[in-house]
Computed example of a mutant assay.
Amino acid sequence: MTEERSEGENGSAGFSLVAVLVFMLIVSAIIVPFAVTAKTKLMIANNEVEQERLSLLAEGLANVVSSELANGSGTEKLRLDATPIACRSGEFTFDVRIQDHSGLIDLNAADAHLLSLGFASLGFDRQTSEELAEAAIQFRGSTNAFAAQAEPASSVGPPQNKQAPFESVSELQEFSALASTPLHDLHDVFTVFSKRGTLSLDLAPSRLRTVLADASGSGASTTEGASEGSTYSVEVTARRDGSGIAGQVGFIIEKYPASAAGFRRLSRSPAADITKLAATTFSENCDALFGPEVAQILRGWAS
């Protein structure tokens, strides 16, 4: 009798244990997905906060660089031909690219030859580059609007010509041959702000300078020596070492003495892909880029 009772109690205990284990498995199956989802959302939120934090920092540093360009101190110490330069503060790296628009091709003022060299710097062959240059001239307007309307549409150009000046470099993406060209690459060659039919060879970005050098003696409208520019593209990237998270900003600014800052923003410009900044030149600290006061703040912030 005692043995039967003991066997019954053992069986009951075993059943209870199995029931508890099954219950725990069911609860785990319900809770674990929620826990994983919550952890994932927390990681995403933390990454978004970090990116926003770095973006705000990059924008602040872009304002510092813009002020230096406006007061003239930046034009003496900074590269103005889109050559990337960077500094490190603690575990953070700051990349800066500045392009004086005197070294770019103005879509509204350049002649067909200079425009074709600009398109050639983007990798197009000579014939396509010349066709794109002619399409750009037709797009921006003709002295004879009726004759322009009678001309057949270009196979590399836009569906319809604007017959008015370019307002933005982004309008080039309306051209069929340029639709897939990254907007940043177009901004690296062309502008609508210099208002000049020539460009300063010393301020041209490397890809454009190479093409112009190869075409030397061909009648390209270039000038030697840096000119006094008033419009600049300013790009700043802030990133933490070892992290794929980065904050980026890009602006086109011009000197504007009426403003307390000495400059004003004309538009946003697409920032460079940080993976393409491999040729970055590092300075020892951030003093040269942003000034000693800002560099001191960055050191305190990064510590």
Results as ranks from 00 to 15, higher is better:
T2E: 01
S168I: 01
S176Q: 14
K276D: 09
P205D: 06
A109M: 13
P257M: 02
T222W: 02
L203D: 06
S221H: 12
E50I: 01
A226W: 00
E151R: 14
E9F: 12
T275N: 05
R140E: 06
L25D: 00
E151H: 03
S200A: 14
A136V: 10
F263W: 14
N63P: 00
E174W: 03
S206K: 15
G291H: 08
L54E: 03
D81N: 15
A38D: 08
T83R: 12
Y256R: 11
F15Q: 09
L25S: 15
P152H: 04
A295P: 03
V96P: 01
L172H: 03
I98S: 03
E254D: 14
S16G: 02
L104Y: 01
A45V: 04
S221R: 15
L69Y: 04
A258W: 01
G11N: 14
R196P: 01
S233N: 14
S28M: 10
F166W: 08
D81I: 03
Y256V: 02
F15A: 15
A278L: 10
K77V: 11
A238L: 01
T231Y: 08
A179V: 07
G157D: 08
A62M: 05
R268G: 15
L178C: 11
E151D: 07
G300R: 15
R239S: 13
A258L: 05
E171P: 04
T280K: 11
V211C: 00
N71H: 11
E171N: 09
G74I: 07
D202H: 09
A220W: 02
D273H: 04
G14K: 09
A147V: 11
M1S: 13
A278F: 09
R79W: 06
F190P: 02
S16M: 13
A147I: 11
N144P: 08
L132H: 03
S216N: 13
G229F: 05
R5F: 07
T210S: 07
R53I: 00
A109K: 13
A302K: 05
L122W: 05
V189P: 01
L199M: 07
S221G: 00
F34V: 10
G60E: 02
P152C: 08
S170C: 00
V64G: 11
S121G: 08
H187S: 07
P33K: 12
E52H: 04
V20Q: 06
K41I: 01
C87E: 06
E235I: 10
D106N: 13
K276F: 05
S154E: 05
L21N: 13
G225T: 07
S227K: 08
A177I: 06
D287I: 12
F92I: 10
G157E: 04
N47W: 00
